[in-house]
Simulated scan of single mutants.
Amino acid sequence: MSIDLFNNEYVKDILFQPTAMADTFAYLDQEGQGIFAGPQLSIDHYKRIVLTGMGSSYHALAPLYYRLIAAGLTTHWIETSELIYFAESYLTPDTLLVVVSQSGSSAEVSHLLKTVGHQVDVIAVVNDPESELAQKATWKVLTRAGKEFSVSCKTYLSALMALNWLGDHLLPQTEALFPALAECIPWTTTYLQHWQEHVEELKKLYFGKTDLFLIGRGDSLAAVGTGGLILKESAHFHSEGMSSAAFRHGPKEMLSPSVQVVLFEGAKKIRRLNHQMAEEMQGQGFNAELIAEDSRIDAFRFPAVTEGCRPLLEMLPVEMSSLALALLHDHEPGVFSIGTKVTNIE
């Protein structure tokens, strides 16, 4: 099977990411102040904040979750599918509900909106301004990623940008993270200019591998979770995303010559742990590589950036991995065989 990546719609979406990021940044930077103009938003009015989404939209909430927790706010991070059936007690007027959905019309989100009606204030982070979520939310934070073919990529990075912006507005007393995200855009452009070299390098890394583990801590759990998801749907390759500590508590027994582990270096305060774990596995003769500033894999290396920017850049090597693995297994990248872009059945 001959696969033409240059005419692949998923690849086109990946290469469009700098534009989607720039458009989202410009929109929020220039017009974002009007989002909470009326009604006014004050988190002091709420007993708790609930963050929810499905798939990559759920995983994208990791950095905001840890940021709110660090600020001392009672915050819960729950998949929408679980929230509507097993955490209904949170769906009360004293809850501020943050719902992330690229389409704004997935089955679980529709169910949630019917459940809460007008009783719960909802902040929507959504890419489609005409969607049910955008129309019914109390406030809507829009991304400007444009229509996406299949696998989440440009909508995901745009959502991470929007969630940084939202965090700044929920926590005005803390250091703003959104302005520094401007530096992510030119670096993303530079990285993607070499996408073909990255894919070829990663094909060599993954050749002969049957399983892939993505592991990290803290904000990197966004890339870990989303990566485990998109590698399965875009490349039809078995991959799992989990915390570094969870991997040590059992799954490490899966290590073998056919297993590849990719560790995300992460925030400064836990880098030592991730580097130590990578060195430990390498010393035991297993396949482990770091996505880090000093990675020995070119496709896994990126410069020192702000904490807000890092979760965005961490996804780029995962996207290149999805292309490499798809090619190795003779699969058209990003083409679904069973599912659809928007999940409309619970």
Results as ranks from 00 to 15, higher is better:
residue 114 K to M: 06
residue 319 E to M: 08
residue 208 G to E: 08
residue 124 A to H: 06
residue 162 A to W: 03
residue 121 D to H: 12
residue 61 L to P: 10
residue 189 T to I: 00
residue 279 E to T: 14
residue 170 L to R: 13
residue 192 L to T: 05
residue 265 E to T: 06
residue 258 S to E: 15
residue 66 Y to D: 11
residue 3 I to M: 02
residue 278 A to D: 13
residue 291 I to Q: 08
residue 172 P to H: 01
residue 279 E to G: 15
residue 165 W to Q: 07
residue 313 L to C: 04
residue 331 H to I: 07
residue 111 H to K: 14
residue 210 T to G: 14
residue 76 H to C: 05
residue 211 D to E: 11
residue 203 K to G: 13
residue 163 L to S: 02
residue 73 L to Y: 01
residue 223 A to C: 14
residue 70 A to P: 09
residue 124 A to C: 06
residue 6 F to A: 12
residue 327 L to F: 07
residue 176 A to V: 11
residue 258 S to P: 10
residue 283 G to F: 03
residue 49 I to K: 07
residue 151 V to P: 08
residue 84 I to D: 00
residue 186 P to M: 02
residue 126 V to L: 03
residue 308 G to M: 01
residue 120 V to C: 00
residue 47 K to R: 13
residue 269 K to A: 06
residue 46 Y to T: 11
residue 345 I to S: 15
residue 270 I to S: 14
residue 316 L to M: 12
residue 95 T to H: 10
residue 268 K to Q: 11
residue 172 P to C: 01
residue 103 S to Y: 04
residue 127 N to C: 05
residue 58 Y to C: 02
residue 37 A to Y: 04
residue 317 P to S: 11
residue 176 A to M: 08
residue 270 I to Q: 10
residue 28 L to N: 04
residue 283 G to M: 07
residue 177 L to M: 05
residue 197 E to T: 06
residue 15 L to H: 11
residue 227 G to V: 12
residue 304 A to L: 14
residue 257 P to I: 05
residue 49 I to S: 02
residue 143 T to I: 12
residue 340 T to Y: 10
residue 15 L to G: 14
residue 338 I to P: 05
residue 102 Q to E: 05
residue 195 W to N: 05
residue 274 N to W: 08
residue 6 F to E: 14
residue 285 G to W: 03
residue 72 G to E: 09
residue 88 E to T: 15
residue 346 E to W: 04
residue 219 D to Q: 11
residue 226 T to P: 10
residue 22 A to W: 00
residue 182 A to N: 01
residue 319 E to W: 05
residue 294 D to I: 04
residue 239 S to T: 15
residue 298 D to G: 12
residue 239 S to A: 15
residue 208 G to H: 06
residue 280 E to I: 08
residue 17 Q to K: 07
residue 90 Y to V: 03
residue 192 L to V: 06
residue 302 F to M: 03
residue 113 L to S: 12
residue 155 T to M: 03
residue 40 Q to C: 01
residue 177 L to D: 02
residue 94 D to N: 15
residue 180 A to W: 02
residue 248 R to Q: 13
residue 171 L to W: 00
residue 295 S to G: 04
residue 284 Q to H: 10
residue 251 P to C: 05
residue 220 S to Q: 09
residue 84 I to R: 12
residue 54 M to A: 15
residue 63 P to S: 02
residue 196 Q to L: 09
residue 113 L to Q: 08
residue 215 I to D: 07
residue 263 L to M: 10
residue 169 H to W: 05
residue 298 D to N: 15
residue 97 L to K: 11
residue 19 T to P: 00
residue 33 Q to C: 04
